[in-house]
């Protein structure tokens, strides 16, 4: 009899940890690992996100340091993309989405009324899951951002920005002779690098990447990963990825999300070799997700 009770207890324990109930969420969850850094670029405290009635993120605390690559991992629907989109207020354009809490970029509240999301998005650029070049020429794609923000006062300056951005994105050699060709004619990997070039042409401080390689083949993925490593010298990068190998390869810190909570965060090498939370360990060892 006592053994049966033991099993039931264990079962309920494991269920609780795998699928936290609503009472659990109201109290908040204490993230395992060090979520704050010494000199943060972005500082998030107590972030809650709701889609209509449904809560998607629960009380997230996380700092993002200067010139680091931080990877957000976790199973589908765990809220990592939602969190990423909070950082440049992309959730604003989703009907019924509500963000609570405090998110600061260089100490400035990005959800304050004085801050124009347009300016914020120029400082915090974003690269999407599927390459989404505009149906324009390669040149116009990269020049789009600088044009709307008035970053160049004449054609020569604009040419310079386009060239520098394409060089930084490692695409210049491949497209320098056909800048006036439609961007949609490029291959998937080239399109994604064009999107990166387009993002850095605006001169952001932070680049958000939402599964930037999930639509690409391994070779294009390798190129992008190398690129991310180079970009780290100038930009802070937050990358959402489904591939744990990718997280291990490109990032310095890793944050593990589960069902809208930030379960564990820490140095990538530590997370992958010595996860402290059982959920993190299960995910990393491939037991689920």
């Amino acid at each position: 009899m006592s053994t049966i009770m033991n099993i039931v207890e264990k079962f309920e324990e494991s269920r609780d940890s795998a699928a936290p109930t609503s009472t659990d969420s109201d109290q908040g969850y204490q993230t395992v690992g060090e979520y704050s850094v010494a000199k943060p670029r972005i500082c998030c405290r107590g972030v809650n996100v709701f889609y209509g009635e449904k809560q998607a993120l629960f009380d997230i605390n996380l700092d993002i340091g200067q010139r680091e690559v931080i990877a957000l991992i976790g199973p589908s629907g765990c809220g990592k993309s939602t969190f990423l989109r909070c950082l440049n207020r992309m959730n604003d354009i989703i009907e019924g989405c509500r963000v609570e809490g405090d998110i600061r970029l260089d100490g400035q509240d990005i959800y304050s009324k004085e801050l124009d999301p347009v300016v914020l998005r120029a400082r915090v650029g974003m690269v999407f899951q599927k390459p989404n070049p505009f149906p324009k020429s390669i040149y116009d794609n990269v020049a789009y951002g600088p044009r709307i923000h008035g970053l160049a006062s004449n054609r020569t300056e604009l040419d310079d920005i386009v060239e520098t951005s394409l060089k930084r994105a490692g695409l210049w050699k491949e497209v320098r002779d056909r800048l006036d060709h439609p961007a949609t004619g490029l291959s998937g990997g080239q399109q994604q690098r064009l999107c990166i070039a387009r993002t850095i042409a605006v001169g952001p401080e932070v680049v958000l990447m939402d599964e930037p390689c999930s639509a690409l083949d391994p070779i294009a993925t390798a190129t992008i990963e190398q690129l991310i490593d180079e970009l780290r010298e100038r930009y802070t990068i937050v990358i959402v990825t489904h591939s744990m190998q990718q997280a291990a390869r490109v990032s310095q810190r890793t944050a593990y999300f589960h069902l809208g909570k930030l379960i564990e965060v820490g140095d990538t090498s530590r997370i992958f070799t010595n996860p402290r939370h059982p959920l993190t360990e299960d995910y990393i060892t491939g037991r689920f997700g």
């Binding site: 440049n88 992309m90 354009i93 347009v118 300016v119 914020l120 998005r121 120029a122 650029g125 974003m126 690269v127 999407f128 599927k130 989404n132 070049p133 505009f134 149906p135 324009k136 789009y144 951002g145 709307i148 923000h149 999107c195 387009r198 993002t199 605006v202």
Partner: peptide, 23 residues
């Protein structure tokens, strides 16, 4: 995704419409 691309670059709604969606 095209709209989001434009918003992500800091385009306003009007800029997104005239510069990306309408073309």
């Amino acid at each position: 995704s095209l709209r989001e691309g434009a918003y992500g670059l800091g385009a306003t709604q009007a800029e997104t419409i005239t510069g990306v969606v309408l073309p």
